[in-house]
Protein backbone atom coordinates (compact mmCIF):
# COMPACT_ATOMS: atom_id res chain seq x y z
CA UNK A 1 0.00 0.00 0.00
CA UNK A 2 1.41 3.43 -0.84
CA UNK A 3 0.51 6.61 0.98
CA UNK A 4 1.08 10.20 0.01
CA UNK A 5 2.40 12.81 2.42
CA UNK A 6 2.68 16.51 1.82
CA UNK A 7 5.51 17.91 3.90
CA UNK A 8 6.29 21.57 4.37
CA UNK A 9 9.89 22.20 5.35
CA UNK A 10 12.11 25.20 6.04
CA UNK A 11 14.14 25.86 2.93
CA UNK A 12 17.50 25.17 4.59
CA UNK A 13 20.55 23.46 3.16
CA UNK A 14 20.48 19.81 4.09
CA UNK A 15 16.75 19.48 4.79
CA UNK A 16 16.26 16.96 2.00
CA UNK A 17 19.14 14.99 3.46
CA UNK A 18 17.54 14.98 6.90
CA UNK A 19 14.21 13.80 5.54
CA UNK A 20 15.70 11.09 3.33
CA UNK A 21 18.03 9.97 6.13
CA UNK A 22 15.02 9.56 8.41
CA UNK A 23 13.25 7.39 5.84
CA UNK A 24 16.38 5.34 5.32
CA UNK A 25 17.12 4.64 8.97
CA UNK A 26 13.54 3.81 9.86
CA UNK A 27 13.35 1.49 6.88
CA UNK A 28 10.52 3.32 5.13
CA UNK A 29 10.48 2.63 1.44
CA UNK A 30 10.22 5.81 -0.64
CA UNK A 31 8.39 5.30 -3.93
CA UNK A 32 8.99 8.88 -4.95
CA UNK A 33 9.95 12.17 -3.41
CA UNK A 34 9.66 15.54 -5.08
CA UNK A 35 10.61 18.87 -3.61
CA UNK A 36 10.33 22.47 -4.75
CA UNK A 37 9.65 26.02 -3.71
CA UNK A 38 6.23 27.21 -2.65
CA UNK A 39 4.63 30.65 -2.88
CA UNK A 40 5.69 31.17 0.75
CA UNK A 41 9.13 32.65 1.21
CA UNK A 42 11.77 30.17 2.39
CA UNK A 43 9.36 27.30 2.63
CA UNK A 44 9.65 24.25 0.43
CA UNK A 45 7.09 21.56 -0.13
CA UNK A 46 7.66 17.88 -0.60
CA UNK A 47 5.37 15.22 -1.92
CA UNK A 48 6.53 11.91 -0.53
CA UNK A 49 5.02 8.62 -1.63
CA UNK A 50 5.83 5.85 0.81
CA UNK A 51 5.08 2.15 0.75
CA UNK A 52 3.46 1.76 4.14
CA UNK A 53 0.21 0.56 5.63
CA UNK A 54 -2.36 2.66 7.46
CA UNK A 55 -0.99 1.57 10.85
CA UNK A 56 2.50 2.76 9.99
CA UNK A 57 1.38 6.12 8.60
CA UNK A 58 1.05 7.97 11.93
CA UNK A 59 4.59 6.88 12.79
CA UNK A 60 5.90 8.36 9.55
CA UNK A 61 4.17 11.60 10.44
CA UNK A 62 5.37 11.59 14.06
CA UNK A 63 8.94 10.88 13.01
CA UNK A 64 8.87 13.67 10.43
CA UNK A 65 7.71 16.07 13.12
CA UNK A 66 10.77 15.21 15.17
CA UNK A 67 12.85 17.06 12.59
CA UNK A 68 12.80 20.69 13.71
CA UNK A 69 12.84 21.93 10.12
CA UNK A 70 9.66 20.06 9.27
CA UNK A 71 6.85 22.59 9.61
CA UNK A 72 3.79 20.67 8.61
CA UNK A 73 2.91 17.15 7.56
CA UNK A 74 -0.31 16.07 5.96
CA UNK A 75 -1.17 12.50 5.04
CA UNK A 76 -3.52 13.06 2.10
CA UNK A 77 -3.96 9.38 1.26
CA UNK A 78 -7.60 9.32 2.22
CA UNK A 79 -8.38 12.91 1.24
CA UNK A 80 -9.76 13.68 -2.23
CA UNK A 81 -6.75 14.99 -4.06
CA UNK A 82 -5.11 15.60 -7.39
CA UNK A 83 -2.04 13.61 -8.33
CA UNK A 84 0.18 14.58 -11.21
CA UNK A 85 3.41 13.37 -12.65
CA UNK A 86 5.49 14.59 -15.56
CA UNK A 87 7.31 12.32 -17.97
CA UNK A 88 9.71 13.08 -20.79
CA UNK A 89 10.37 10.21 -23.14
CA UNK A 90 12.55 9.92 -26.20
CA UNK A 91 11.05 7.44 -28.64
CA UNK A 92 12.67 5.89 -31.71
CA UNK A 93 10.42 7.13 -34.50
CA UNK A 94 11.65 6.75 -38.04
CA UNK A 95 9.51 8.28 -40.79
CA UNK A 96 7.48 5.14 -41.42
CA UNK A 97 6.21 4.71 -37.83
CA UNK A 98 6.04 8.38 -36.94
CA UNK A 99 2.32 8.79 -37.72
CA UNK A 100 1.53 5.87 -35.43
CA UNK A 101 3.57 7.39 -32.61
CA UNK A 102 1.80 10.70 -33.15
CA UNK A 103 -1.54 8.99 -32.72
CA UNK A 104 -0.43 7.73 -29.32
CA UNK A 105 0.72 11.25 -28.43
CA UNK A 106 -2.65 12.67 -29.32
CA UNK A 107 -4.58 9.99 -27.54
CA UNK A 108 -2.81 10.88 -24.29
CA UNK A 109 -2.86 14.64 -24.86
CA UNK A 110 0.91 14.54 -24.71
CA UNK A 111 3.12 17.15 -26.39
CA UNK A 112 6.04 16.77 -28.73
CA UNK A 113 9.04 18.73 -27.47
CA UNK A 114 11.54 17.87 -30.18
CA UNK A 115 11.43 16.30 -33.59
CA UNK A 116 14.70 14.71 -34.79
CA UNK A 117 15.28 12.55 -37.83
CA UNK A 118 15.10 9.24 -36.01
CA UNK A 119 13.31 10.17 -32.78
CA UNK A 120 10.65 12.21 -31.03
CA UNK A 121 10.81 13.67 -27.53
CA UNK A 122 7.40 13.54 -25.88
CA UNK A 123 6.25 15.24 -22.74
CA UNK A 124 3.12 14.37 -20.78
CA UNK A 125 1.56 15.11 -17.43
CA UNK A 126 -1.11 13.10 -15.72
CA UNK A 127 -1.76 10.61 -13.01
CA UNK A 128 0.69 7.73 -12.74
CA UNK A 129 -1.80 5.40 -14.44
CA UNK A 130 -2.05 7.62 -17.47
CA UNK A 131 1.70 8.00 -17.66
CA UNK A 132 2.11 4.23 -17.36
CA UNK A 133 -0.30 3.70 -20.24
CA UNK A 134 1.44 6.27 -22.40
CA UNK A 135 4.74 4.53 -21.82
CA UNK A 136 3.25 1.18 -22.74
CA UNK A 137 1.78 2.85 -25.83
CA UNK A 138 5.15 4.00 -27.15
CA UNK A 139 7.27 1.10 -25.87
CA UNK A 140 6.81 -1.04 -29.04
CA UNK A 141 8.53 1.66 -31.12
CA UNK A 142 11.59 1.69 -28.87
CA UNK A 143 12.21 3.92 -25.86
CA UNK A 144 15.65 5.50 -26.11
CA UNK A 145 15.57 7.52 -22.90
CA UNK A 146 13.01 8.37 -20.28
CA UNK A 147 12.63 10.38 -17.09
CA UNK A 148 9.71 10.69 -14.67
CA UNK A 149 9.39 13.24 -11.90
CA UNK A 150 7.44 11.22 -9.38
CA UNK A 151 4.15 12.31 -7.92
CA UNK A 152 3.20 15.84 -6.94
CA UNK A 153 -0.10 16.19 -5.19
CA UNK A 154 -2.63 18.72 -3.93
CA UNK A 155 -5.88 18.28 -2.08
CA UNK A 156 -9.14 19.24 -3.78
CA UNK A 157 -11.29 22.13 -2.55
CA UNK A 158 -10.24 25.60 -1.54
CA UNK A 159 -8.76 24.96 1.91
CA UNK A 160 -4.98 24.88 1.71
CA UNK A 161 -3.12 22.16 3.56
CA UNK A 162 -0.95 24.73 5.25
CA UNK A 163 -1.43 28.47 5.17
CA UNK A 164 0.53 31.49 6.31
CA UNK A 165 -0.62 32.44 9.76
CA UNK A 166 -1.47 28.89 10.67
CA UNK A 167 0.32 27.69 13.76
CA UNK A 168 1.84 24.39 12.81
CA UNK A 169 0.35 21.68 15.07
CA UNK A 170 3.61 19.97 15.71
CA UNK A 171 5.30 18.25 18.60
CA UNK A 172 8.90 19.30 18.17
CA UNK A 173 10.44 22.56 19.30
CA UNK A 174 9.67 25.48 17.00
CA UNK A 175 13.16 25.96 15.73
CA UNK A 176 12.12 29.05 13.80
CA UNK A 177 11.48 30.96 17.01
CA UNK A 178 15.19 31.29 17.45
CA UNK A 179 15.16 34.65 15.72
CA UNK A 180 18.13 34.15 13.44
CA UNK A 181 15.95 32.82 10.74
CA UNK A 182 13.58 34.71 8.60
CA UNK A 183 11.88 31.43 7.85
CA UNK A 184 8.21 31.49 8.62
CA UNK A 185 8.17 35.02 9.88
CA UNK A 186 5.08 35.19 7.73
CA UNK A 187 3.49 32.23 9.28
CA UNK A 188 4.40 32.18 12.93
Amino acid sequence: MVRTFIVYVADHPGVLNRVSSLFRRRGYNIESLTVGHTHLPEISRMTVVVAIDAQGAPLVEANLYKLPEVLHVHDISSVPSLHRELVIVKVAASQDVRPEVMRVVEAFRARVLEVATESLVIEATGSEDVIDSLIEGVRPYGILEMTRTGRVAMTRGSAPVFAPGQVPPKGAAPFWNSGHLTVLRNCS
Binding site: N17, R18, S21, R25, L67, P68, S178, H180
Partner: peptide
Protein backbone atom coordinates in the same frame (compact mmCIF):
# COMPACT_ATOMS: atom_id res chain seq x y z
CA UNK B 1 22.51 13.56 11.80
CA UNK B 2 20.81 10.31 12.85
CA UNK B 3 22.09 10.41 16.44
CA UNK B 4 21.15 13.95 17.44
CA UNK B 5 17.78 15.59 17.94
CA UNK B 6 19.15 18.20 15.60
CA UNK B 7 22.47 19.73 14.69
CA UNK B 8 23.65 23.05 13.37
CA UNK B 9 26.58 24.31 11.35
CA UNK B 10 27.35 27.91 12.32
CA UNK B 11 29.39 29.93 9.84
CA UNK B 12 28.94 33.50 11.14
CA UNK B 13 29.51 35.10 14.53
CA UNK B 14 25.99 36.58 14.29
CA UNK B 15 24.48 33.09 14.31
CA UNK B 16 26.29 31.82 17.40
CA UNK B 17 23.88 33.19 20.01
CA UNK B 18 20.56 32.36 18.34
CA UNK B 19 21.79 28.89 17.47
CA UNK B 20 22.94 28.14 21.01
CA UNK B 21 19.66 29.36 22.44
CA UNK B 22 17.77 27.09 20.10
Amino acid sequence: LPITKHNYLVKRAEDVAPTLRA
